[in-house]
Amino acid sequence: MEDPYKILGVSKSATDAEIKKAYRKLAKKHHPDLNPSDKASESKFQEISAANDIIGDPEKRKRFDAGEIDASGNETPEHQYYKQYGGRPGAQQYSSGGNFDDMGDIFSQMFRQRQGGAGGFGGGRSFDMKGQDARYHLAVSFLDAVNGNPQRITLPDGSNLEVRIPQGIKTGQSIRLKGKGQPGIGNGPPGDAYVEIEVKPHKLFKREGNDIVVEVPISFDEAVLGGKIEVPTIDGRVRVNVPAGASTGQTLRLKGKGVKPRKGKTGDQRVILKVVMPKVIDPELKAFAEKWRKDHAYNPRENM
């Protein structure tokens, strides 16, 4: 890094107050959120803040001046700026509601469309404005999300809002309820409600893409002999055939028993078997294993 005094444009004898003032002035000029269209502002601002981190701190400044620390190794970590979010999905709540009527037909038309107005090229002007959007957060159980069970939100005024959950919705997705926001101004339409979904984890099921993954314990005798066992799926229990000689980690695929999204391919359920030995090894089992080992020993670790 360059000399921090040079970066902030102050002399080595500047007072702490002068440094602070110089830093603020430069930061206001170069902060990336105040220069959303300027890519270079990010590295410029980073440089300014790294310089300020050293000489803006009287302790560190003393050590820097004494040559105990240098300017390198003081790069500030990569920062998340608001400009990465502004004007994008997830930040609709900060839409200015500003009007681009003076920007020509295309822009004002696009604007009116987004605001849910009547639209139409060269349409008349009025003080009608769409109401504000409302934003809700809804935690949905795992099964309600994969099965698309409707939910209800209670609003602060005590009224209810019915929310239809599309099957297979994921955390972070948003549901738009048209016209369920704040009332409009004049003859403007009401705003929309955006419901952000958070899917709560399930104690058995995990989701991987559209597949449902579940670990199912089987007993030692079931592993040896195979047979039918009952396993839970997202729409009830089903009987599944365990092949004889099944091992822990072996996966059975239940075709079409995964998430059925509105768009895209239905997933499968993957059943991962886990052999669980009895809690107590009784003398009979022990005697059998000792006898069996004599003639049938095998080494599952031969490839390790």
Binding site: Y85, G86, G90, Q93, R135, H137
Partner: peptide, 22 residues
């Protein structure tokens, strides 16, 4: 800053956090 209204308390998203930082 306009967080979403959760069932019990306000719920913030990444954009809200970036806004708080700003």
């Amino acid at each position: 800053v306009c967080p979403a209204q959760g069932t019990e308390e306000a719920a913030y998203n990444e954009a809200d956090i970036a806004r708080v930082r700003l």
